[in-house]
Structures are given as structure tokens and as C-alpha cells.
């Protein structure tokens, strides 16, 4: 029956319904405004970064990247990221698993706490750590007595980065896991699977694209974080400078070519992140469509 109906539709091209379309000039106006806005605030600055970075030639560009201070900043940024992203990956999975699959008291409070780093200004986040671990802070004396340096040192930068990037993975997974419900996990358990087996074989494969998406966003933020890190870092060149802080210092010293060269690295990272993010979105979209088809097939 449906084949009989759909056949003529696929043969005759259906003209787009004019009744539901705006006149041409309205459409063109809206598209131009959108593109103009994007160009002004995104494309031009992005192009500016690369032209400024290369203004004095490739040699200067390269030299400013292999400068020891720049290399040290890159290294520190990578260290902070390599620690913060896996830490928040583990935490995010644990939190999402707990919130989506179990009922417990204080669930709403935990959800609110996970969102806290989004709500709090990064500068405040940095200040919290200074208040806790700084020389005049709560644990300052004890730390000094035991010769542990957190503030104005690498551990502080890592802590601040973890704090700021804390919600990304959890926030991405929670709605996904909640939508998937607990039936597949229950099925796995009735068949004798242990908690670990259920997590590895059922839960994680079902959320793998969402997880990757969360990790990409978390990674981008970890590398680009400025405010919180700036407060705890102390800006010691070659020691506690991350890439974003390095850009600021160079710029303040009117060393524009070097500043923009370092900035171009961050911009390049942002572009790579965007490309990855779109790829993952495309993939999850395909999966979502498949799932929708699955539910519509059920009847």
C-alpha cells in the first residue's frame, strides 16, 4: 500500500512549498547578516592571527616557537592537559554512571556541584586554590613545613585546569546515559555479568561517541584555559607559564610576532578541535538516526 503511494512521489519532483517560505529578499538578508557577523567576529580575527604571526617571515615565526621559554610553555600546557583530561575522564564516567543508573539521596546536589565550574568565574576558581594552598592560605604553613609547593608551581596549574574542565565529560554523558535507561545493564546482570563487565561491554560502548565528544571539549578547554591558571601560576618564565600565559607576556612586551606565533598554535588547536568535534557530531548524529529508526520500527 505504502509502495503504491510513495512511487509517484519519488518520480515527480515535489516543488518546495511556497506557502511556507519567506520571500527571497528576507532569506538573503538573514543569510548575509549571519555571514557578516561570523566574518567580523570570527574569520577576520582568525586570519589576523596567522598574518600577524607570519608578518616577519617564516624564520622569525619558527624561531619564536622553538625559543626555550615557548617550548617550556608548550610542555607545561601538555603536562597539565595530559593529567587533567584523563582525571576528568575517569571522574566523568564515574559521576555519569552514578547519576544516570542509580537512585540515591543528594543526586540533585551532586549534579549542581558538577556544574559549579561552569557557573564560577575561572579567576575565582584560581583564587580558591590560592586561599587554600597559598603561603597565607589554610594549608600554607603545613605545606611550607613539608616543602610542598602547589601555588606558583606545576601542581597548582594542574589543579586549576582540572577544576575548570571538570564538567565537560560528565555533562556530556549524563543526558545520554539517562536517555538510554538501565534495561541493557539489567539484562547484562541477569546473564551473570559483573559490574566491571557491564561497564566495559555494555555501558561504555553505548556512549563511546558522546564520551569522545566530551574528551575533545575537555581537552580544548584544558589547553586554552587562561583565567584560573593565570591566578595560580605566578607567570615564572620557563617554569610556570602555559601557552596562553606565554602569549599574554609576549604581547605585553610588544613582541607581537612571537605572541601571534604562539597564538597561532592555540588557534590551530582550536581548528583541529572543531574538525574533530564536527566529525564526532556527524557520527553521533548517524547513530541517533539509526536509533530513531529502530524505535519507529518497533510498531
Amino acid at each position: 500500500m505504502s509502495a503504491v503511494i510513495s512511487h509517484p512521489l519519488s518520480v515527480l519532483p515535489v516543488p518546495a512549498s511556497r506557502a511556507t517560505q519567506e520571500p527571497a529578499w528576507v532569506r538573503w538578508l538573514l543569510i548575509s547578516i549571519a555571514l557578516g557577523w561570523l566574518g567580523l567576529f570570527l574569520f577576520i580575527p582568525l586570519a589576523a592571527i596567522f598574518t600577524e604571526a607570519l608578518r616577519k617571515g617564516l624564520e622569525v615565526y619558527w624561531a619564536s616557537l622553538v625559543d626555550p621559554d615557548a617550548l617550556s610553555a608548550i610542555k607545561l600546557t601538555l603536562i597539565a592537559t595530559v593529567i587533567a583530561v584523563p582525571a576528568n575522564l575517569v571522574f566523568g564516567i564515574a559521576a555519569a554512571w552514578a547519576i544516570a543508573k542509580f537512585e540515591f539521596r543528594g543526586k540533585q546536589l551532586l549534579l549542581t556541584l558538577i556544574d559549579l565550574p561552569f557557573a564560577v568565574s575561572p579567576v575565582i576558581a584560581g583564587l580558591i586554590y590560592v586561599l587554600l594552598f597559598g603561603a597565607q592560605g589554610w594549608f600554607g604553613e603545613w605545606l611550607q613545613a613539608h616543602d610542598v609547593k602547589i601555588i606558583f608551581a606545576v601542581p597548582g596549574i594542574v589543579l586549576a585546569t582540572i577544576f575548570v574542565t571538570f564538567p565537560f565529560v560528565a555533562r556530556e554523558l549524563i543526558p545520554l546515559m539517562q536517555a538510554q535507561g538501565t534495561e541493557e545493564e539489567e539484562a547484562a546482570v541477569t546473564m551473570g555479568a559483573s559490574g566491571w563487565q557491564t561497564l566495559w561491554r555494555v555501558t561504555l560502548p553505548n556512549v563511546k561517541w558522546g564520551l569522545l565528544y566530551g574528551v575533545i571539549l575537555c581537552n580544548a578547554r584544558a589547553m586554552g584555559e587562561f583565567g584560573a591558571v593565570s591566578v595560580v601560576s605566578g607567570h615564572i618564565r620557563g617554569m610556570t607559564n602555559t601557552l596562553p600565559l606565554h602569549v599574554e607576556i609576549l604581547y605585553n612586551e610588544y613582541n607581537f610576532a612571537a605572541a601571534f606565533a604562539a597564538a597561532s598554535l592555540l588557534a590551530g588547536l582550536a581548528l583541529v578541535t572543531l574538525a574533530l568535534k564536527s566529525a564526532v557530531e556527524w557520527k553521533t548524529g548517524a547513530e541517533l538516526r539509526a536509533r530513531n529508526e529502530e524505535t519507529s520500527n518497533e510498531h
Binding site: E183, E184, A188, M191, V202, R291
Partner: peptide, 25 residues
């Protein structure tokens, strides 16, 4: 053996792997 109203099949596994799950774990 529990059969769920909405089947609860593992959507990322083939039919074969779904049935084999209880043996593999």
C-alpha cells in the same frame, strides 16, 4: 532468564554476540 518488554538487546552487538554474551561473561 529475563526478557524485557522493550527487548533490551545490546544495540552495538550483532545478534550472534547478543546471544553469546551470557557465555562470554
Amino acid at each position: 532468564g529475563f526478557v524485557f518488554q522493550h527487548y533490551a538487546l545490546f544495540r552495538h552487538m550483532t545478534v550472534f554476540e547478543n546471544v553469546a554474551f551470557g557465555l562470554r561473561v
